Simulated scan of single mutants.
Amino acid sequence: MTEEAPLRGRDETRDERADRKWGELIQEVRVAQTGVQILFGFLLTVVFQPKYARLSDTDQLIYIVTVVLGACATGALIGPVSLHRLVSGRRVKPQAVKLAGALTFVGLVLLLITMASSLLLILRVATHDGYVPWLVGSVVCWYLVCWYGLPIWTRLRYTDPEDR
């Protein structure tokens, strides 16, 4: 009698894996899309406030950069939906999942930068104090730990070396 090797991972076909990964990706994107759309919508209203005209040139530049970053993040995070719609039924789901994952990653990076830039602008206007860059830097570090550090640590710590 021979001993069978334990099953590792999921017993699924390439297409089943792509379907599962697509479903997981879309759920992740929904969370990020909501955040970026709310932030972007808020940013679009700022220019129409009376106080905008009184902002310094530097603060107006930070605002413009922030709005452009928010627009780019929104595009990247909505991109997977459009991608899916345009390639649906073409038998390219594994490739679409890979591309949509890359768009989502780029969107999250842009969202992080947009949030940091928004925080910088808000705190500069609210306080005019020299500690603002340090505070924003601390928040960015926190985002980096939560969004990238912990996932990478988990991946390195718990992924079987054969699966890397």
Rank of each mutant, 00 (worst) to 15 (best):
L7I: 12
L7W: 08
R8F: 10
R8P: 09
R10W: 02
R10K: 03
T13N: 06
T13Y: 04
D15C: 04
E16T: 01
D19K: 07
D19Y: 01
W22S: 03
W22Y: 11
G23Y: 04
E24G: 02
E24L: 13
I26L: 10
Q27S: 14
E28F: 14
V29L: 12
V31E: 09
A32T: 04
A32K: 01
T34A: 14
V36G: 04
I38A: 07
I38K: 05
L39K: 01
F40R: 07
F40T: 05
F40W: 12
G41Y: 01
G41H: 10
G41V: 06
F42D: 02
F42I: 11
L43Y: 03
L44H: 00
L44G: 02
V46M: 07
V46C: 04
V47Y: 01
F48Q: 13
F48A: 10
F48R: 02
Q49F: 07
P50K: 00
P50Q: 00
P50T: 01
K51D: 12
Y52I: 04
R54H: 15
R54G: 14
R54Y: 12
L55M: 08
S56M: 00
S56D: 12
S56W: 07
S56K: 11
D57A: 09
D57H: 14
T58E: 04
D59E: 04
Q60G: 08
I62Q: 02
Y63H: 00
I64Q: 15
V65R: 05
V65K: 03
T66K: 07
T66Q: 03
V67P: 08
V67F: 14
V67A: 02
V67H: 06
V68C: 08
V68S: 04
V68W: 08
L69S: 03
L69I: 03
G70R: 01
A71P: 08
A73I: 07
A73N: 06
T74W: 10
G75H: 13
G75A: 14
G75T: 05
A76I: 09
A76N: 10
L77Y: 03
I78R: 13
G79M: 14
G79C: 13
P80T: 09
P80S: 01
V81W: 15
V81H: 15
S82K: 15
L83T: 11
R85A: 12
L86T: 14
L86H: 15
L86R: 15
L86F: 15
S88R: 15
R90G: 08
R90W: 11
R91A: 12
R91H: 13
R91F: 13
V92M: 09
K93G: 03
P94V: 06
Q95H: 13
Q95C: 08
Q95G: 15
A96E: 03
A96L: 00
V97M: 00
V97C: 03
K98D: 06
K98R: 15
K98A: 08
A100Y: 03
G101Q: 09
L103I: 01
L103D: 01
L103S: 14
